[in-house]
Simulated assay, not measured.
Amino acid sequence: MDTITHTLFGLSLYGAFKNEKETKRYNRALLVSTIGASQIPDIDIVSRVWDTEGLYQMWHRGITHSVFLTPLWAFTFFFLMWIFFRVKDRRLFYISWLAVLIHDTSDLFNAWGTGYLEPFSNTRITFGTIPIVDFVLWIIILAAFVISKRPTLPTQKIFRLAWLAMGLHVIIQSVYGFYIYSQYDGNYEEVALSAGFVPFNFTVIGKSEEIVDIIDTSFIKEDQILYHLKSNEGADLDLLFEKRPEAKTLYQWAPFVVIVDDENYLGLYDPRFYRKGQSFLFEYIKKGEL
């Protein structure tokens, strides 16, 4: 998910666990823990500063997003709250752990995927059933904040109901997405799914040999093939990987790619992000510059 969504998750966890009977110091530590732990896996973004080998895509959503690292992140915030707020409460450990788990697990559901099982597997696990920016989640959280301003309603209960609503949204959207996936799984050798911003609207990307189809499918309209692409599978990519190591990273990271080998370019791109004739994940070299 995007940074704003992760921040909203942290604030929603704070609302679900904040207790007016606790000290201000504890509630401040709780706020910092929920927001910080909801963001901490994305600390890998700093790797782009020293990345000279084009490995950033593999580092991002890699080991820092591993489910096996979540208790370490939780202990980090438990320790920091002890140091800075003088609050030593095991509840902060468990709530921080929950926040990190929500971050890592929610990232599984969008097209980028995540290295959930690193270091034992560097496969990017991706379901593609929830968009990276999900406005339905934003609306649910915003509604919870507005309703919680009414002094007669218990804040904890409101935000816990909001979490229930968000969970139901993810489940329903994902079940429908897997249904769509199953409809095309037998038609192609490889299939990937990418959720649109509108609920129950998906892009299906299917690849068989050199052909890649990008299909728009929605609950309210008939499926439509948006693009019919050809991948030059016989192209020699050694020079591309040598000159543009980012291309090798993308080749390893994406479920599958479209290879371009024409008079102008040698490159490859991720068709899940193909819009209006191009993908923003396109790594290439110009043949005229070799």
Rank of each mutant, 00 (worst) to 15 (best):
D134R: 08
Y188G: 06
A162W: 05
I139G: 07
D134G: 05
W82R: 08
T152G: 03
S148Y: 13
L101Q: 08
A74M: 08
Y179K: 09
I141V: 10
S148C: 02
A195H: 11
T76D: 05
V146D: 05
R150H: 12
P154A: 00
Y116S: 01
M81L: 11
V67E: 11
V146N: 09
V175R: 00
V136G: 02
F145H: 09
W138Q: 05
K88Y: 04
Q183R: 12
Y179A: 01
K149R: 14
F178I: 05
F178A: 01
K149V: 12
I125A: 07
G113A: 12
I102V: 12
W82F: 10
E118S: 13
A162L: 10
R90M: 13
I147V: 15
P119L: 08
A192Q: 06
R150A: 05
P151Y: 09
G177P: 12
I95P: 14
G128D: 00
V136C: 04
T152Y: 08
L137V: 14
T126R: 14
L153H: 09
L108K: 10
P151T: 09
A192S: 14
F109Y: 14
F68D: 01
W163Y: 09
W97A: 02
T105A: 12
I172Q: 00
I147R: 03
E189F: 15
T76H: 10
L142T: 02
F145I: 05
L137I: 13
G177M: 11
R91Q: 10
L108A: 06
T114P: 06
S96Y: 07
I102S: 09
I141G: 06
I102C: 04
A192W: 09
W138M: 08
F75N: 11
F159T: 08
F120W: 08
W73V: 12
F75T: 12
F79V: 12
F85L: 02
I139W: 07
T114I: 04
L98W: 14
Y176N: 00
G186S: 11
D185L: 14
V146G: 09
K88N: 10
K149S: 07
P131K: 05
W163L: 07
V67T: 09
W112G: 05
I158A: 04
I125G: 03
V170I: 15
V146F: 15
I125T: 10
S121Q: 03
I125Y: 15
L142S: 13
D107Q: 01
R90I: 09
T76G: 15
S174I: 00
I102N: 00
G128K: 01
I95S: 08
N110P: 00
T155F: 05
P71G: 04
W163E: 01
L92M: 02
F84Q: 01
E190D: 05
Y116L: 13
M166R: 04
I172A: 00
W97C: 06
L168Q: 03
W73N: 03
K88V: 07
A74G: 12
L164F: 14
H169N: 07
E118F: 13
T129F: 08
S96C: 11
S182I: 02
F127N: 01
F75Q: 05
T105Q: 01
V87C: 07
T126E: 10
V133T: 13
G113M: 07
